[in-house]
Every structure is written in C-alpha cells, then in structure tokens.
Amino acid sequence: MKTFMALLVLCCIASSALASEAKLETVKVGIDVRTVERGVDAVMNACRPCHSMKYIKYRDLVGFGIDKQKVDTWRGDQPLDAALLAQMSESDAMQAYGKAPPDLSLMAKARDGGANYVYSYMMGYYVTPEGMPGNHIYPETKMPDILGISAATEAAQRTEIQGKARDIISFLAWAADPHEQERHRLGYYVLGYLFVLTFLLYLVKKQIWSRLK
C-alpha cells in the first residue's frame, strides 16, 4: 500500500503541473488597501464606462477600508447600497462591440490562470505588421487597448502602465474573493488548533493501545 500512497502523491503533482500550461505572465497581486484603492480608481475611469461589477456595492468598498470621501465621489448621487454598474447600457455595448462586455466581479477567478490571465491579457496588446490591433492572449477580443500598452514604447511608460494594470488586478482579485484575507487569518487559527488536537488524539491513541502490549 505504500506504492499506492506514492501514486497518489504523484497524481497530485501531475495535476498541479497540468494546471500551469499557458504562457502567462505572473503578477503579484497587492492585498493592501492603498493598492486596491488605486485599482478602483483606475477601474472607475478605464473599465466602468463599459463593464459592470454587479456583485460589488459601494458599501463593500467602504467596508474594506477605502476612504469614504473617495467612495462618495465615485458613487455621485447613487446610494451606498448601489452596485457598481456600467455607464453604458448593455444594448449600446452590443451595438458598439457586437457582444456584451462581461461583468468583472468574478473576472479574477473566471479564467484559467485567474489574475495572471487578466493581467497578461491587458498587457498582451500589440500592433500587427499590418497596423491592426492584436492580442496575444485573446486574439478575438473586441475590447480596445484601453491602457495603451501597444502604443507605449518607452520603458518608463510601459512600467507605468504595467503598474496601473497591477492595481486593477489587485482590485479585481479582491472583488472576486473579498473574504480571502479573513479566510487565511481564520485558517491559521484553525490549523494551529487542529495540530494541537491531532497531537493530543495521537497521544490518546498511543496510550490506549499501549494497554495491549
């Protein structure tokens, strides 16, 4: 049965190796409030004209710790309980692009590769030899190169755009999984407790079985 165990482990390793097939850039997602706040700002300007984030409400941003005044300027006259909806109606978007821009609430979880995919996609725009816009990650995309990475040639300019994209990803990652930090924190306590309990249960088992010898 030891061989069986080894096979199981092998299987786990193989499956995790399978998952990382695509040639995506890895992005380090920021989890601090300030990065996310900059991300919201960028999303409000660059993405929200077309994309909605219907599962995120303004009060969620306040709850996360983003400056209330900033949230107030973003929401204008909408109530705190309103969702972050697109400024463009879906039918207008259909007319302009041929398909409705997807909701971004879960975008960081809804593609193979997660946040890395979205980052690589945003940074994947280029200009074809024929002068047409293209995208390495998602060639059929209808979205224009909103951050302007394909036109940026100077290193400093590219770095700035990449930083902005990283901010956006950080916000999207938080939006897709708003309880992640709470989950990790609770997870450490639970694991710590379980190690203690399992050790005690091990001692109990050993003591009880020692009676047989």
């Binding site: 407790y193 309990l197 005690l200 249960l201 001692l203 109990v204 003591q207 009880i208």
Partner: peptide, 24 residues
C-alpha cells in the same frame, strides 16, 4: 473508559483531549 489499570496520566490526557475537542 475504564482507567483503573493505567493510572492518572491517561485519565488526565483523555479529559484534556475531550475538553479541547469539545471546544472545537
């Protein structure tokens, strides 16, 4: 459990484990 033949340590250990488990 009958604890007669094994002394106090196990008795204590089992009680402790029960309390920790119950808290969980």
């Amino acid at each position: 459990l009958s604890v007669g033949d094994c002394g106090d340590r196990r008795n204590f250990l089992i009680k402790l484990t029960s309390v920790v488990g119950g808290a969980g």
